[in-house]
């Protein structure tokens, strides 16, 4: 489409398209994300209480939350939490687990090698790729500045 009519159509579409409920979504993300982190805090306390230093307790907490996210995805519950919580469900590491487990389950019917194995990182892959690249760059800068180690 070209010209004035196309512009008028585009303007109509823009006007008729409902806006995302930014405030409502933000509130839901805050609450759901907050609650998930609250659950994480239970484990962090537990591991700290076992005498683990903060760094190791944090690693153990992440691992535990990944397990919980994987289990809830397997049980078919986590997609519903995500529907409500948006990034509140997706940004916590439980959501990262969901991003790995959900394609693994979904593409099982294409086999364990080319289905599960190959598709597992369709969404989580980019996260690992760029996290690795950025962290190496940050580490290199710190090293050049003499602040690493």
């Amino acid at each position: 489409m070209e010209g004035a009519e196309a512009r008028a159509t585009r303007e109509l579409i823009r006007r008729a398209t409902p806006q995302r409920p930014v405030v409502f979504n933000g509130l839901r993300a805050f609450l759901v994300g907050g609650v998930i982190c609250g659950v994480g805090q239970i484990f962090l306390r537990l591991y700290r209480g076992q005498g683990l230093p903060l760094r190791e307790a944090a690693t153990a907490t992440s691992g535990t939350m990944i397990l919980i996210g994987a289990l809830l995805t397997g049980l078919g519950v986590y997609d519903r939490i995500g529907r409500q919580g948006g990034m509140g469900a997706f940004l916590p590491i439980t959501g990262f687990a969901n991003a790995i487990v959900s394609p693994a389950m979904e593409f099982k019917r294409e086999g364990f090698i080319l289905g599960v194995g190959a598709r597992m990182f369709t969404v989580a892959g980019p996260v690992i790729v760029y996290a690795t690249a950025v962290s190496v760059a940050v580490g290199a800068i710190l090293w050049l500045l003499g602040r690493a180690g």
């Binding site: 979504n25 933000g26 993300a29 805050f30 907050g34 982190c37 994480g40 805090q41 919580g85 990034m87």
Partner: peptide, 15 residues
Amino acid sequence: AFLVGGALCLAAQLV
């Protein structure tokens, strides 16, 4: 934990 975690998720949702 609730406030800091919630705030990070809120920021992500806004983006």
